[in-house]
Amino acid sequence: MTATFEAFQTRAAAVSAEVHRFATRHEGLAFIECFLREVGVSEAPGSGALWVDGSFLEGIGSAHVTSQVPGVSFEVTREAAAVAKVGISQLDWAIAGTGTLVQDATAVEKRLVSTLPPIHLAVLGTERILADFNSVLQRLQPEQINYIAFITGPSRTADIERVLTIGVHGPERLIVVVVDDFEKVTA
């Protein structure tokens, strides 16, 4: 598992994603709360964080997060996503070979928080990192999923003089929080 994680981390870092690994969800959450405070998430307009609730907070509760970091909201709308500073969502799979995150993004909320805010924070179970594209395809039933998103690093362009620029339309930062004890909950 560690080798797969390390491969994923190396590839993801190569495309400017920031990857952090934690043993437990509690440790992961502590990091996330600290991170949100650090980037200045607050209740002030334009400083909020939007979280699409998933199994990550099972047994912890969203209320715990909002009490720790005011400014985090779980009510995801297009309008809220358009002004949020950070979007947080749970990813379904990752691909070690390319540093890619994969998500069943049928729920448009998941797409909005990973597209509109300048920072996207993704949470993921370590067990969910697979070797390659085909391994992921085999575990998905694409015909039953309206929207599958593959995300490799933050938004980028090289349209001006081929100069690499991060954060053109989508997020300019992609933070990936990988947690080892995730599967006990999601399984």
């Binding site: 729920a107 015909e143 309206n146 998103a149 593959f150 490799t152 690093g153 933050p154 989508g170």
Partner: peptide
Amino acid sequence: TYFNLITGPRGTDEKDG
């Protein structure tokens, strides 16, 4: 960076998209 597989419009219970 992005690779999107689109298989349909939003579901009846979705408010956006």
